[in-house]
Design a binder for these strands. Structure first.
Lengths: 159, 159
DNA sequence: GTATATGCAAAGAATTTGCACTATG
DNA sequence: CATAGTGCAAATTCTTTGCATATAC
C-alpha cells in the first residue's frame, strides 16, 4: 500500500532520519501485524519484497530507530532481541510456548519512574512470562517451542 | 569457609541435586557478594579456586539450578544472561554505565500474578534501567561501558 | 557530485553439543 | 562398579565490522 509506505517515510523524516526505501519498508514491518519481531523474522518476511535486504542493514537500521526513539528493543525472549514498533511505554507478556509477545495493558510503574532507591530510572520494563490464552486453549497457534536457556524456550540450532 | 561450602552442599541435597564439589562452589559463587554474575564472571572468578572448571560445566550446572528453582536467569543485560542466586521474586535495576544489577524492593506485581488478560502468568520480571546512584555520584565504580545493542551497553568483541 | 546507506563476506562472542574421562555413592 | 558429572574441542547462531558499491538530496 502506497499510503503505509508514505506514512512510514513521513514518520522517518519527522524523526530526523533520511527516508530511504529500505528504512520505510523496515519501519512499516516493525509497526505492522505480527508485532515484536526479531531480526530474523524481519529478514525472512521482507526478503519477499526486497530480495537484496541484508541483515546488516536490519541491524544498523533498527539500532538507528532505537536511538531515535522510533522502536524499543525488548530483551524478554532469551534467544534473541525483539523489536517493538510502539514506542509508548507499556508492558509485555511472553508466551513460552508459541514465543509470541503480547502487549499488557496495566499501569504499574509504566512511565519513567524518576528515581528509585536513589537510582535514576530511564526505562521500566514489565515482563510477564507464561502461557498465553491461545496456547492454554489448545495451542493450535503454537510454533515450535524448543526449550533451551532454562525456563524459557530458545530456538535450537539447525543442526 | 568450610561452612559456606557445607551450607551449599546441604542446599543442593535439599533440592534433589547431587552435591558435587563444582556444584557447591558454583552455588556459593552465585549466592555470594558481587551478585547477578554472568557465566563469564563466574568462570573468571572461580578459575582461581578450581582451575579446571569449564564453561560447559557452568552452563549445564546453572541450567540445572534454574530448573530446580535454586537460581533465576535474568535477561536484563542485553549482552549476556545474568544469574540471580536469590530465588524469591523481586525486581531489578540495571545500571547502563557500570552494568551492575541491583535488587529493587518494591511490591508491584512481584508475585505470581495468576492471570492477566487471560494469559497464565508464571513469572513476573520488573526491569528498571538507568544510572545507579554510585554512577550518578561520580561513577568511580564504573566498569567499561561499551555501547552496542541500542540504549544499553554490550561488551564489545575483543577485536 | 558528495556524503551517506546498503550489502557482502568475514570476524567475534555467547551458547550448545558430542564424546572421552573422571569422580560419586 | 556403575551411573552421572565434568571438560575439551568443535559446531552453531546471533551480532558486529570492514570495505566496496549504490543511492539520496
Amino acid at each position: 500500500m502506497i499510503s503505509n509506505r508514505d506514512e512510514s517515510k513521513r514518520r522517518l523524516t519527522a524523526s530526523g532520519i533520511k527516508p530511504t526505501f529500505q528504512r520505510a519498508v523496515i519501519l512499516e514491518a516493525v509497526r505492522g501485524k505480527n508485532g515484536h519481531p526479531a531480526i530474523r523474522d524481519l529478514h525472512a518476511r521482507l526478503l519477499r519484497d526486497v530480495p537484496t535486504l541484508s541483515k546488516t542493514t536490519l541491524y544498523s537500521t533498527l539500532e538507528l530507530f532505537a536511538r531515535k526513539g522510533l522502536v524499543k528493543p525488548l530483551f524478554i525472549d532469551p534467544a534473541e532481541v525483539r523489536y517493538d514498533g510502539v514506542a509508548e511505554p507499556h508492558h509485555h507478556f511472553y508466551c513460552t510456548a508459541c514465543r509470541r509477545i503480547l502487549d499488557i495493558d496495566i499501569a504499574c510503574s509504566t512511565g519513567r519512574a524518576g528515581r528509585i532507591h536513589g537510582h535514576q530510572v530511564d526505562e521500566v520494563h514489565g515482563y510477564f512470562k507464561g502461557l498465553c490464552r491461545d496456547c492454554l486453549a489448545g495451542g493450535r497457534l503454537s510454533r515450535a517451542a524448543n526449550v533451551s536457556i532454562h525456563n524459557s524456550p530458545r530456538r535450537k540450532p539447525h543442526a
